[in-house]
């Protein structure tokens, strides 16, 4: 549908758990700078799709391409170096690390001075060099650390005064909403080309959700390519360039927010799952 070259290209991606097909032959294209949302009732396979794209799970079939390169089955630590960052639905901050350290870990792959990349036969010495540089701290390493810290502060400033006053607090002591913010800050510190957000506003109240929506909108404006999973359909409709709808592992609709909203199959999918308790909140919105 888009003439721009795809940044992310997913073809016939499939993942089965025993008898259950959690992701069933899903195709997906994401152009550079595009904002695509994935919606669907609970258990539709959205998170599993994210896991397959980000290397946390291996597909039973299908391919994933990023910038034209086949990344199917590559481990997550490689994908990070290519510029793919994600957040997790249930939150995975480093609980005993401070807010600042969490964000700095997000920038891990960008620390070059302290982690010299050596050509293949020498690369075995990499870890030794890393320890040595961490202990000796030549000025290049010190400046790099300083630069990253400044950038981390700029990232954290995006969240107003939610996180800045708590830089040194371990994240286990933060509120739930703040932990989600730290996760997004950490993802931004990677300097991602593609950002995957799995229900970033889950468990947030209305004010917090609105705040998060503004932030994500800003990220979109800055040209970042974003893939979003979200149950709050108002937000999805306002932010997305395109929406795909999943149900029982398959894509059942794909198009502009307005098209998807009025698609009978979509309304059916949401209503059909009315008895599943978690999705109830989103049913009225979808049926409106």
């Amino acid at each position: 549908m888009s003439a721009a070259p795809s940044l992310l290209e997913v073809r016939s991606l499939t993942r089965r758990f025993g008898g259950l097909t959690a992701v069933n032959s899903v195709d997906l294209d994401l152009a550079e700078g595009e904002f695509l949302s994935v919606i669907g009732p609970n258990g539709a396979g959205k998170t599993t799709l994210f896991n397959l794209i980000t290397g946390h799970d291996d597909p039973d079939g299908g391919t994933v391409k990023f910038s034209g390169r086949d990344i199917t089955r590559l481990p997550p630590e490689w994908l990070a170096t290519l510029g793919i960052a994600r957040t997790f639905q249930h939150g995975r901050v480093f609980a005993n690390l401070s807010v600042m350290d969490n964000v700095l870990v997000g920038a891990h792959v960008r620390f070059k001075a302290v982690r010299p990349a050596w050509p293949s036969p020498l690369s075995l010495l990499g870890p030794f060099a890393e320890v040595a540089l961490a202990l000796i701290r030549p000025s290049s390493v010190v400046t790099e650390e300083k630069r990253m810290r400044e950038e981390a502060l700029r990232i954290l400033a995006r969240f107003g005064d939610r996180l800045l006053p708590r830089l040194d607090h371990p994240t286990y002591s933060l509120s739930y909403a703040n932990r989600r913010r730290v996760e997004i800050g950490r993802a931004l510190a990677l300097g991602p080309k593609l950002l995957l957000l799995d229900e970033p506003t889950a468990g947030m109240n209305q004010t917090e959700t609105a705040e998060m929506q503004t932030l994500i909108g800003d990220l979109k404006k800055s040209g970042l390519t974003i893939l979003l999973i979200e149950h709050k359909l108002d937000m999805v409709m306002q932010l997305s360039d395109r929406v795909i709808v999943m149900d029982n592992g398959s894509v059942i609709a794909n198009g502009k927010p307005a098209e998807v909203r009025n698609n009978p199959a979509v309304i059916e999918a949401y209503l059909g799952h009315r008895r599943s308790d978690k999705s109830e909140a989103s049913v009225p919105e979808a049926a409106e």
Partner: peptide
Amino acid sequence: RLLRSHLGRTLRAMRDDDIAARSYGIG
């Protein structure tokens, strides 16, 4: 000194959540 370098936070991040650590490039 090691724990105060980037290695300190890297190692502790791995301990706290190895899955998240991997997705930020920590082998």
